[in-house]
Computed example of a mutant assay.
Amino acid sequence: MIVDEIGTRIFTRRGLDWTAIPRPGRRIEVTRLDSAIIDGEIIVLNDAGLSDFAALRKAITRRQHDLYFVAFDLLHLNGHD
């Protein structure tokens, strides 16, 4: 995820723009950040509340409302690594 003067955007590791995911039509808002690079992943939870890769593959094309962005590393924040 990149936060800068343009806004908040999500890119895949291959550089595809997935800004509309996890919630198409709903903007991801990050407050109190001038700029940031946040590493994370898109997941889908199963009935037990665990990440389910098989469900993720289906949800990308059929159930985008089930997708969540989970952040796990702050690589850059307001000009600092």
Rank of each mutant, 00 (worst) to 15 (best):
V3K: 09
V3I: 15
V3L: 09
V3S: 08
D4T: 05
D4I: 05
I6T: 13
I6R: 14
G7S: 13
G7D: 06
T8N: 15
T8P: 05
R9K: 12
I10D: 13
I10Q: 10
F11N: 12
F11D: 15
F11S: 10
T12N: 12
R13D: 02
R13S: 04
R14K: 01
R14Q: 09
R14H: 03
G15K: 02
G15L: 06
L16S: 14
L16T: 08
D17L: 01
W18S: 12
W18H: 12
W18N: 12
W18M: 13
T19C: 06
T19W: 02
I21R: 15
P22I: 04
P22S: 06
R23M: 05
R23Q: 15
P24C: 07
G25L: 05
G25F: 14
R26G: 06
R27Q: 12
R27G: 05
R27D: 14
I28W: 08
I28G: 09
I28R: 15
I28Y: 13
E29K: 12
T31L: 14
R32E: 08
R32G: 00
R32F: 02
R32I: 01
R32V: 00
L33M: 08
L33Q: 07
D34F: 01
D34W: 01
D34R: 14
D34C: 04
S35I: 00
I37D: 06
I38Q: 02
I38W: 02
G40W: 00
G40T: 00
E41F: 00
I42L: 15
I42E: 03
I42S: 06
I42M: 15
I43Y: 08
I43P: 04
V44L: 06
V44C: 11
L45F: 12
L45H: 08
N46F: 06
A48G: 09
G49I: 01
G49Q: 15
G49F: 10
L50A: 04
S51D: 13
D52C: 04
D52Y: 14
